[in-house]
Design a protein around this nucleic acid. Structure first.
Lengths: 101, 101
DNA sequence: GGTGTTGTTCGATAGTTGTCGAACAAGGGT
DNA sequence: ACCCTTGTTCGACAACTATCGAACAACACC
């Protein structure tokens, strides 16, 4: 099965934003931004593994992450460079909003 | 009725992103970013006025816009400065993504 | 080959959301 | 006073989404 990791230019902005507009997924993205590559199982945010798998699929299909097999695990990483090139400042703004209004 | 325009610091990031993650609302925001203040009726993007009113409410309650009465109309404007202070680069990135991947 | 680990997929379900028409409210103009 | 314009609110409805347990698949290791 192909991983279905789309070209960033082909993904509507609304799809990217919708992918980020969820608490669990935002925590995943935050963890990836800080810790680099990680296995799916490392994202234990109080949801079942079925739900986790679903969220990772949403992120992947929105072009936010890439996944590669590594034995029985799968390693997920953020497509930081590509995202920063297409949406400069978006990830920074979303991941660490300024305390000022 | 109070307009329910929240303090930006009190709105979760996911709420802001969810508000932007809709095609009609993004068109409204884009129009506001380019044209400044505008009446609700000026946003005719193929939806009924009930739907339009709903979208404007979502934007307002997410802290993206302010609304003030002006006769029988209402004038809507983008909270650009506040948003740029709290989420630097977000609006720019969302409103005009680079063509490069 | 069997067992355990790691993820994915498949229903099912409850909650949310986008959409509409119709009814309502508030002003302005004549 | 009457009407017209402009928006909001109220059900209603369809579509989507987040969530789960259970079943399945792939791989490693003993």
């Amino acid at each position: 099965m192909e991983p279905h990791e789309p070209d960033l230019t082909g993904v509507p902005v609304t799809t990217v934003l919708a992918a980020l507009a969820d608490d669990v997924r935002l925590q995943i993205v935050r963890a990836l931004a800080e810790g680099g590559e990680a296995t799916c199982g490392s994202f234990d945010f109080g949801v079942s593994k079925a739900t986790r798998s679903h969220h990772l699929k949403v992120l992947r299909e929105a072009g936010l992450t890439r996944t590669r097999a590594a034995g029985t695990s799968r390693l997920v990483r953020l497509r930081r460079d590509e995202l920063d090139r297409r949406y400069p400042g978006l990830l920074d703004a979303v991941l660490s909003p300024r305390p000022s209004a």
